[in-house]
Design a protein around this nucleic acid. Structure first.
Lengths: 311, 311
DNA sequence: TTGAAAGCGCTAACAG
DNA sequence: CTGTTAGCGCTTTCAA
């Protein structure tokens, strides 16, 4: 296209171009919730990388499971996408086959998706590290607030972090109480309710809680404050994600750099797309991303006021 | 298409269909930040309405101003969109002309965009109502934390809410102090910093603060707590948006139902698209959306401890 | 009513 | 190396 043409306001038709070439310069991003910090931030990263490469981003938000079927069964198969980024998505055999049969390159984040190259953090290790941080401070009464089983299809993650928690507790010879293993829907509000209930009984109260996301940790911190418990003196809290608001709450967390996950996943996907599905060119099938423990003021050695049960 | 065909796994090519018919069943959503609660929630609403109507959603996230030019100058003009939803976007004459010249129906949210049908709340009224809530409780020392001037292009909103605040203060014969008029970037973290500075000087301290968003209100509440100020006894806080986390923080707010704004905006846009740009069919050029004052525990009459300056 | 044919505006392959 | 032409897979129009 000449400069003169573009100055006249001429713009090429991408429909025609797509039809003729088979390339649409359009990537689909599939995720369970746009309105959770982790996903929104990862999406931002993906968006940056795609804009920079001149690609459009088509968003498919399951909104829990509400649109799961129609996205997987209809939208993704319309052959208008050069590739799909699947975030925290768990596919069954039929679904995987259907997508791959459509000939669309897919990269997953937070998998594993069998047969699909995936980017992820080591969730078991994250759970272990968070729990060990608390244990190394001297805590023996450690609770865990994880993700809902109901969302298990999309959130296999939560079981990994829980496994790491149980692992670390066992390795330290510490007791796992059923009452200390909480399940929420990953929202701050639900975490607040669960934590308030957990902390209500002074006898059974843990001295520390490991939350599988920062948003849940926010809820836990607020619940503790509302019960008059001091953080970290009477309750230590650690989260996962690296949410900016953690700074002003003083939340100790394991940062997983979701933005970088988004840009890296797009890099991988575009490599696949541009090398025409040649998986080898795109790097390892299972790529592990960095995480980092960020210690702030929400965790410390347990300093339990007199009259409380203690370690 | 027959049922038999679809059972054989046949899927129509949307590229060909788009080229032949000129309709792509694809709507662009333009917004300044996916990672702010208001925008993410509005996006969720838009996504629902679009999925239900069988439309794809192409996301254009400016990320502040980072991609503003390329979205407006390149991406939107590629003629692959049946319509555009422009959220909190302010266009200059050239930009408006360019978009309209491309023949793409546009609906705005939070405008006004001259020449484009727009959905919005009455921001001046919102500012007035929030401020009057505080005044009616007996506050005379009321501060305002609003949006950044730097983002003025996208956030004309902030000036409306500020105008309402100044309006209400003047109507009640109350003083406006420059030190009580704060500006932040709409994030909780920045609001925290600004508020902490504001509240540091006990002499000059207001007894109430009106924040132009709930996320900013969260920051303000945390700043107050960290300074040892009790909410609402020593500081009342009111926000705008209706963020769910406001429930567990007890934040009084003016709910603007962003999800409904998203679905309603899509309704309007699809009406335009399907009636082939016949603006009359799509409703009023400037549609006002509902808001609702939700009173919780972050606001009350000022009850200032002895030794503090007061009303 | 049903069926054939002519584009939609590009890309890619081919011939000159 | 440049210029021409045949599709890409639909929608829509026109003839039967």
């Amino acid at each position: 296209m000449t400069a003169a043409a573009s100055e006249l306001g001429f713009v090429m038709s991408y429909h025609a171009s797509s039809l003729a070439s088979g390339r649409s310069h359009n990537i689909g991003v599939v995720l369970p919730f746009v309105n959770r910090w982790y996903f929104a931030t990862l999406l931002e990263g993906a968006n940056s990388a795609l804009m920079d490469a001149g690609y459009d981003l088509t968003l498919y938000d399951f909104q829990g499971d509400r649109y799961r079927e129609s996205v997987l069964g209809d939208f993704l198969l319309r052959k208008r996408l050069d590739g799909v980024l699947a975030v925290s998505l768990q596919l069954n055999a039929h679904e995987t086959e259907q997508i791959l049969a459509a000939g669309i390159p897919v990269v997953g984040v937070g998998g594993p998706l069998p047969g699909i190259p995936t980017l992820r953090i080591d969730d078991v290790e994250v759970g272990r590290r968070a729990t060990n941080h608390l244990i190394s401070l001297g805590h023996t009464r450690v609770a865990h607030l994880g993700g809902e089983h109901e969302y298990g299809r999309n959130f296999e993650i939560s079981s990994g972090r829980r496994a790491g928690y149980e692992d670390a507790m066992a390795a330290a010879g510490l007791p796992l109480r059923e009452a200390w293993s909480l399940i929420s829907d990953y929202s701050a509000n639900d975490a607040y309710k669960e934590t308030k209930q957990l902390l209500a009984d002074a006898e059974e109260r843990p001295t520390a809680i490991f939350c599988a996301s920062d948003e849940m940790a926010f809820g836990a911190m607020l619940a503790a404050r509302d019960l008059g418990l001091r953080i970290p003196e009477e309750l230590s809290v650690i989260g996962v994600d690296g949410h900016e608001m953690g700074e002003i709450l003083g939340l100790t967390t394991i940062d997983q750099f979701p933005r970088s996950q988004g840009t890296r996943a797009v890099e991988r996907l575009l490599a696949l797309v541009q090398d025409d599905g040649d998986a080898a060119a795109a790097g390892p099938a299972d790529e592990l991303m960095e995480t980092r423990l960020v210690v702030r003021s929400s965790t410390s050695a347990p300093r339990i006021p007199a009259g409380q049960p203690g370690a």
